[in-house]
Structure formats: C-alpha cells, structure tokens
Amino acid sequence: MKLLRIKRKIELAVISDVHLGTHGCHAKHLLNYLSSIEPKKLILNGDIVDAWQFRKRYFPKSHLKVIKKIMNMAADGVEVIYITGNHDEMLRKFTGNTIGNISIVDKLALDLHGKKAWFFHGDVFDVSIQNAKWLAKLGDYGYRALTQLNRLVNWYLERRGKERYSLSDKVKNDAKNAEKRIKKFEKVISDLAIENAYDYVVCGHIHHPKMAYIENKHGTTMYLNSGDWVENFTALEYQFKRWKVYHYNKDKLSPFFVDEDFENMEFRDLIAAITIVEQHEKKAK
C-alpha cells in the first residue's frame, strides 16, 4: 500500500557540491530530501556531477536515481536551473541551452520580492582553482581518499551508537590557512555583491554552509552558501521572503523516504526520464 506523502512547498531550493560519481557522495540522503519538497525553482549550484573523479566502473544506482528524480521534477513543472561549477565545467560549453524546464547557465540573477539575488558556484573566486588547477585536482584525490575512510569510521561509530565524526572537517579546521581562506572567499564575493547592489549572494564550492550578513563601508549583503552533500548534507531554502539553511541530519522538518517507484530503477529508466522531458518541451511549443 502506498502512503500519502505531503511535501513541503517552497519557492526556491538550492543545492550544490553533490559530486555524483564519487564514493563521497551521499546520494540516498539527497534523494530523500528532494522527495520531501515541492519547489517552484530548483537551483543546482555547481559540482552536481564530478567529472574530475568520474570512472566508468563507479556510478551506482542511487546516483542515477538522483538524476531521474531531478528529471521528473522538471517534467512535473519545476524550473530546474543548472549553474556550472569547476568539477562539472565540461557543461560550460552548453551554457545558454534549455531542454524543457532545465536550463544551463554560468551565473544567475533573480528578483525575489523586490530584492536582487546573485547566484554562482564560486570557483572563479578561488585562487587555488584559477592559478594551479593541477594542484587543486591533486588535493581533490586526497580528499576523496579521506571521505572513503570517513565513511568506514562513521559506519563503525553508528554501530556503536556514537555520533558521526568528520575527519575531513578535522583536517580542514586544523589546517593553518583554512579559516583564512574561507573568510577571504566570503569577503571577496560579498564585496563584489555589495558593489553591484545585490541584496543576496548565493554560492557553493567551499563545502561550508552559511547564512550571514556581511557589511563593508559601501553597504550590506546577505552571504549564503549551500554547503554540500558529501559531509554536511545541506541545502538553502527560500520561502515567505526568508532564507534558511536546511540541515538533513538536524532539521526538525524530517525528510520523507523516496517513493517505491525508485526502488527498482534501472539505467533504461533514466533514459525514459530524459525522453519525458523532451516530450514535455515539444508539447510546450
């Protein structure tokens, strides 16, 4: 018997840094979250698929289900906006293209109840990415190994009834320049947003969820970072003229479990979902 699921209706949801195609991605958590909401717009703010670490041998069914879920949301009328990031930069050649309700862009500006919002992934403001991409990728492989080890550690801790622990958070927090780098990232982005009179600036990239007002001598902006689905399992939500950071593990609005339709999904079902989106586009014309 299929249970009736009441989804939370929200105006806007923002997710980033999912890293589908990697061992660190928690696709099931994300699928549960997407199944719990009914947004008017879904903004995928970069690094949804990880081309840097993509391997033909590793793209599990749970990762395919996330893609199918997003396709189905688009077919049901949700406007899906994919903002490219550094790990999925191969999509930047398709910037400006639209398939049904799915569009691909490098950045986005929206008017939210009379306030200006600016969306982008954030990698263009990261010196380590722009000036030494090979070094960033080398560090990325180390991060991948660390997240795999972390999953084993957390599996053991959960079996013992203890709280989860983030090894990568520990490494990043202990790193001498980690906090300095994050603050510089936030300041550069916020200063530019203030200079261009944006009330909100929304990014991802650094896997550090945050919502804060940042001020300089020229004005104020609200800085928002959607975090990630590797460690923090966070999203940004906008409803009733307010923003909030949604925490999968802590938020009182518990996510629903996925529909039974996804349980036996195969690769051919993903192709069928894409076909549905294309048919939707033809009907709209």
Rank of each mutant, 00 (worst) to 15 (best):
K187V: 02
A136G: 02
H121W: 05
D140A: 15
N264L: 05
D191S: 03
T147S: 15
R8W: 15
L30W: 03
Q239N: 09
Y165M: 11
Y198V: 05
H19S: 11
F256S: 15
Y141V: 12
K93R: 11
N154R: 07
H63T: 04
S226N: 00
K217T: 09
E278N: 06
A13F: 14
S16K: 03
G114Q: 02
N196S: 05
K61T: 15
V14E: 11
G142P: 03
M265C: 05
V245P: 09
G24W: 03
C203T: 09
Y156N: 08
A273Y: 02
L30S: 07
L157R: 14
I10Y: 10
L30P: 08
L31V: 01
L112H: 06
A145P: 00
L108V: 07
F262P: 02
I83R: 06
A51E: 14
K40G: 08
F185W: 06
E278K: 14
E163Y: 05
A284F: 09
N131F: 13
K210D: 09
V230C: 00
Q239I: 11
A197M: 08
D111C: 06
D106Q: 06
L42I: 05
H23D: 14
L30N: 11
E231I: 12
A109P: 02
E195W: 13
Y82D: 00
Y156T: 12
I189Y: 07
K137Q: 15
K180H: 09
A74E: 06
L91T: 10
K187T: 12
H87P: 01
V258P: 04
M90W: 11
Y246N: 00
S166V: 14
V153T: 12
D76E: 12
L30G: 11
M265F: 02
H19G: 10
N150C: 02
V153R: 08
N249K: 15
F54P: 01
A197R: 13
K28Y: 14
K107R: 07
I48K: 03
Y246F: 05
S168V: 06
S168A: 04
E186P: 06
D140T: 13
T22V: 00
I182C: 08
Y213R: 09
L4W: 13
K184P: 01
F125R: 01
G46A: 10
D17G: 02
R92P: 08
I70L: 07
F125T: 01
